[in-house]
Design a protein around this nucleic acid. Structure first.
Lengths: 244, 244
DNA sequence: ATTGATTTTCATTGAATGTTGAAATTGACT
DNA sequence: AGTCAATTTCAACATTCAATGAAAATCAAT
């Protein structure tokens, strides 16, 4: 029934969405349309609200209130709450993916003929996202916390899979080349552990402040990276040394 | 406004909960009361539902339907949905905490005068929970997935803090003794990474099946532990070696 | 000024939410 | 049989939810 609803909704939405002009109608390369700022406000508000209270913990009413726009505009611009979430994620995931792939290619270039070091691979994966967290843009913070939540909720694996798996497979392949003696299974598990460690940093729940009584701070990305990269690299290398 | 509602609800609930007899009224050491099986059904159903769809993604109606009991019984036995969640978690967290502390004491005993090895500490932390996941009891599976979700949601840090922080501080202290050269900050971060890696295993979202195209399985706890312990141990040791 | 598509507003839909009060039932005790 | 508290049932409560339909407004192009 749930799937049927989703399908029905999707079908309706495909029909009812405003017809986006596929190519610029006018001379300018890209014509900025009237509703663009509305779309942006909604995306940003949704990102913040979803991150704070989870997808099901926030209503479209709250989101539109934060965005300062009318409730009905969500369904006009995005079709449904589900689709709003998808666009919130896709927007930034695209950026991070491209940066990560580029960073990895750079590392490969520097490594010449051989494979880049584990540290280089891990850094190429972590920095594109983590560096943005210390750049003052709260949006990236919210996006990170949202990803952390979806990563762990079974009902969203479809969504996160579509968006994040390409990056994952890209880096899993790089790790395989860098750890030729590790079994394929160890590589996959190692990648999961990598993700998990990173998620603890980007989810920024404030737990480390509480545990350390203020000695460590969730927002101290430099401090986190300074430990995260050695931790993961040493862990992965240990998997590469393993007798199987 | 939201906080005010929560406070009001809590106050009401404190007044309206059925007066639980503090000590056994009759001869038997512990008199099993009539509603106990109802309580259990609700706890188990809530555990399963929360794990699958998240706290806000499930209604009390769904939970009581799964439990096969009347809707009103949730508020009769637990006072509120919030409190139901708390009891769902506390029930199993208590068991795991005791097992972990006991396992750590055992490791200390075996290590004689010196500190237990990193492997021993990490194992003492991981096994009490992970071993239960391969013992057929689906409840532990649901509990683990639920913990994974709450761990990453800001709005539940109060709850998870109350329940999980004592264990955390216990093991952080053990790690400090085992890694005398590591800075306190590195220990705290290391513990966070440990948690993160573990969460990726116990959240069991099926992602590793998809990424590895069936080569690895989320349910393969032995395989996961076989990589998780070396990964984390090597990572922590690297933090201990770090120049600071 | 008029057209016509895009965007916004407003009112409302039907369903689902957590919670509650009052009556009915149960079962162990006198 | 009768008592009484614990438990269960049933029917509602007032909100809130996502989504929609139709009218109003906006604005560039003719």
């Amino acid at each position: 029934m749930k799937t049927k609803n989703a399908v029905a909704r999707k079908a309706v939405q495909a029909v009812k969405l405003p017809s986006l002009p596929q190519r610029p109608l006018r001379g300018a390369r890209r014509e900025s349309r009237r509703g663009d700022s509305t779309r942006l406000s909604i995306l940003n508000a949704a990102e913040r609200c979803f991150a704070q209270n989870g997808f099901d913990g926030v209503s479209l009413r709250t989101i539109t209130e934060v965005a300062g726009v009318d409730l009905a505009l969500v369904n006009y611009h995005f079709g449904s709450k589900d689709n709003l979430l998808r666009e919130v994620i896709a927007r930034r995931a695209k950026v991070v993916h491209e940066d990560r792939v580029r960073a990895l290619e750079m590392a490969r270039h520097e490594a010449d003929a051989s494979s880049p070091s584990i540290e280089a691979i891990v850094t190429a994966f972590l920095e594109p996202l983590l560096r943005r967290l210390s750049n003052g843009d709260a949006g990236w913070h919210h996006y990170s916390r949202l990803i952390s939540q979806l990563d762990v909720l079974p009902k969203f694996t479809g969504l996160t899979g579509d968006v994040l798996d390409p990056t994952a497979l890209h880096f899993i392949n790089a790790l395989r080349l860098a750890l030729p003696k590790a079994s394929p299974q160890s590589i996959y598990w190692g990648y999961m552990f990598l993700i998990g460690s990173m998620v603890q940093v980007i989810s920024a729940t404030g737990r480390i402040e509480r545990l350390s009584r203020g000695l460590c701070r969730s927002g101290d990305i430099e401090g986190a990276l300074h430990r995260l990269i050695p931790f993961i690299s040493a862990g992965l290398r240990a998997l590469g040394r393993q007798a199987e």
